[in-house]
Simulated scan of single mutants.
Amino acid sequence: MKKLAVCAAMLSLVACGGGYDDIDSSRPGGGIGSTVTNPDNNGDNGNNGGNDNNQFSDWKYGSQTEGNNTFSTRATVFSDNTFTVPTEPDFQKRVSVEVQRTAIATGGIAETVTINTVEPVKCTPSCDVVIRFDGVTSRYRMTQASDGVLKPLDKVVEDRLFNQFTTAKEAIVTLPFMSLPQPFEAKFNIKNYDVSKMRLTVEETTAP
């Protein structure tokens, strides 16, 4: 009788349509053969139940090489927020900042900062751009090198901005767009800038 009871139990599982496979696949995260998506790097590892820009940096890195030498590196970060202009109401635009390190012919290294505003700003030929780094507000003299491209006016300002963008955790850049009635505050998560990805490996050579 016991053997008959066990067989009946097994047959009932099969007859119900899948048995253990269905039970396993109904578990959180799926079961055997299911695909589990890894958490996004911009998340908070489940600590706060959503995106937490304080946990991860948004920097994207790139470099230019020649042979075994890396002679130029760059790190780019895009603003967390977007803006629209009246002429393109359905198009979301995003500001970006690029910092670059380049080996120069004299043997030194040039460190530059570029703010790509996408849209022209009220900065002709130069203007004071208000930037708040980690809650501290300062003005930086910049020039609009071309429509939608801001660069520091001189090396002193450039050095200050390069240092701030690569050491602070957050930056808020106030941009007076020509197409908007009010300035736009572009917010950047710049925490955890990785200096190891910005190292140059140019071999120095000397004449005999």
Rank of each mutant, 00 (worst) to 15 (best):
G18E: 14
P28F: 09
F56Y: 07
N54P: 01
T37V: 12
F78N: 13
G46A: 02
F83I: 10
N45L: 06
G49Y: 02
A75P: 04
T73K: 15
F78E: 11
D24R: 08
T65I: 02
F83V: 09
G31S: 07
N81P: 12
G49E: 05
N38P: 03
G33M: 01
G29C: 06
G43Y: 00
D22K: 10
G46F: 00
T65C: 01
D44N: 03
G30Q: 01
V85D: 05
G17N: 10
T37L: 05
S34E: 08
G18Y: 09
A15F: 07
Y61Q: 05
N81Y: 08
K60A: 06
P28T: 08
G33F: 01
R74T: 15
G29R: 04
P89T: 05
G31R: 04
P86Q: 13
V85A: 07
D80P: 03
N53D: 11
E88G: 02
N68Y: 05
G62H: 05
D80A: 15
D40Y: 04
N47G: 09
N42T: 14
E66V: 02
G31Q: 03
T87I: 15
S57H: 01
G43H: 01
E88T: 08
N41A: 04
F83C: 10
G43C: 00
N41Y: 06
N41V: 06
T84L: 05
G18W: 13
V36L: 09
N47W: 09
G19Y: 04
N42L: 14
N41I: 08
D21A: 13
G43E: 00
D40A: 10
N41S: 06
D21K: 13
Y61P: 04
Q64A: 15
D58I: 03
P28V: 06
K60Q: 13
S72F: 11
T70W: 07
D24C: 08
G67W: 11
D44L: 01
D52L: 01
G33P: 03
T84E: 08
G49I: 02
G30A: 00
I23W: 12
A15I: 09
W59N: 02
Q55T: 07
S57K: 00
G31N: 03
V36Q: 03
N69A: 04
G46H: 00
P89W: 05
D44H: 01
G31M: 06
N41K: 05
G67V: 11
D58M: 11
T84S: 13
T87S: 15
S57G: 15
G18Q: 11
T84M: 06
G62L: 03
F78M: 13
G31K: 07
N51G: 07
N48G: 14
R74L: 13
N81G: 09
T82A: 06
T73W: 13
T37H: 01
G50A: 12
G62A: 10
G67D: 09
D22H: 07
G18F: 10
G50H: 10
G29K: 09
F78G: 07
G17F: 10
D58R: 15
T65G: 10
T87L: 14
S63Q: 15
G62E: 07
G18N: 10
Y20H: 06
